[in-house]
């Protein structure tokens, strides 16, 4: 996976765009990748405060009009949110843009450095898994961050353990939101398969969506905190939906959205199963919250703010 993207990068070199013919494959030379070797990240310690920062660079293709307006907007949203200094949002210290070539601008985001994400945190957890009180704390912080984003009309849209950072003190910090458009474009560009495991049914079905998508992802992550493995591991959109329906049951025709091309008849009928069959560690309150998060109808799915008031949290 890493190899394929690294090999692709080798075809990028400095200078004007030249089409290099290599058999049947054509590569467009875009620009040299960052000075450092591919696959490294710069991290620094502030000698005054002792705090760590890390750089995340985003290479943006530009035309004669300069940076795309959408990128400028996204950065503006990130900076605006930063002013609130929310404890559960990763700190953005600075945004630096540098013109690399005529066709490319490098936008470097200076973030606070957190050394692990929820994925590694769960992998490191000793065998019986996280105790319920720890899960409760993580969930509470996650929902706090999410309700903050939602109250500012920002959707995360790609919530997954990889972009939920957990500090050494156990503080949860959401990362990677607001730049969603950058990643939606990246999907088509990189050979890396984008995970579908945390995607909500309405997104998988191509229906209209809003903030409830993040609550679905939260539900999947909540289950994963107990299971220490993903709840629904689909290999394709259809497979992901099948796996979801095998647990929550096939929704009724009335619940099925009108604006989708995929019909309900494509899926075999399933009755909802008790969620504790899949996540036996769940308490009664936990099971109730999980079912409210994994509700098919986005309008009936619990909101971040209501979830914070749930008996489990």
């Amino acid at each position: 996976m890493r190899f394929s993207s690294a090999s692709r990068e080798k075809f990028r070199s400095t200078g004007n765009p030249v089409m290099a013919q290599d058999g049947d494959v054509q590569y467009e030379r875009v620009a040299e990748i960052g000075g450092g070797a591919y696959g490294t990240v710069y991290k620094a310690r502030d000698t005054e405060s002792g705090k760590f920062v890390a750089l995340k660079s985003v290479r943006v293709h530009t035309d004669h009009e300069g940076l795309p307006l959408s990128t400028v907007r996204e950065v503006a949203v990130l900076r605006r949110l930063e002013q609130f200094d929310h404890p559960n949002i990763v700190k953005l210290m600075d945004v630096c843009a540098s013109l690399r070539t005529e066709q490319e601008t490098k936008v470097t985001l200076v973030f606070e450095h957190v050394d692990q994400d929820l994925k590694t945190y769960l992998e490191k957890a000793p065998p019986p898994g996280l105790p319920t009180h720890r899960v409760r704390d993580l969930m509470h912080q996650l929902l706090c961050g999410l309700s903050f984003l939602h109250s500012h009309l920002v959707l995360h849209r790609d919530l997954k353990p990889e972009n939920i950072l957990v500090t050494s003190r156990g503080q949860v910090k959401l990362a990677d939101f607001g730049l969603a458009r950058i990643y939606s474009c990246t999907m088509a560009l990189t050979p890396v398969v984008v995970t579908l495991w945390y995607r909500s049914p309405e997104v998988l079905l191509g229906s209209s969506y809003g903030t409830p998508v993040d609550l679905w992802s939260t539900g999947c992550i909540f289950a994963e905190m107990f299971m220490r493995k993903p709840l629904f591991c689909g290999e394709s959109e259809a497979d992901q939906l099948t796996k979801i329906f095998s647990v929550i049951g096939l929704p009724s025709q009335e619940e099925w959205p009108n604006d989708v091309t995929l019909s309900r008849e494509n899926f075999s009928p399933h009755n909802p199963q008790p969620i504790t069959d899949h996540v036996p560690e769940l308490t009664n309150e936990g099971a109730d919250l999980l079912m409210k998060l994994l509700t098919f109808d986005p309008l009936r799915r619990i909101s971040a703010l209501s979830a914070l008031e749930h008996a489990f949290c």
Partner: peptide
């Protein structure tokens, strides 16, 4: 003031990884 070090992406959360955005995709 800042002591910089270059570290492997495998040593940091994948969120810090470099990404590409194609403006044409718009």
């Amino acid at each position: 003031n800042y002591e910089w070090e270059e570290i492997s992406v495998s040593a940091v959360p994948s969120f810090y990884k470099e990404s590409v955005r194609n403006g044409k995709a718009r």
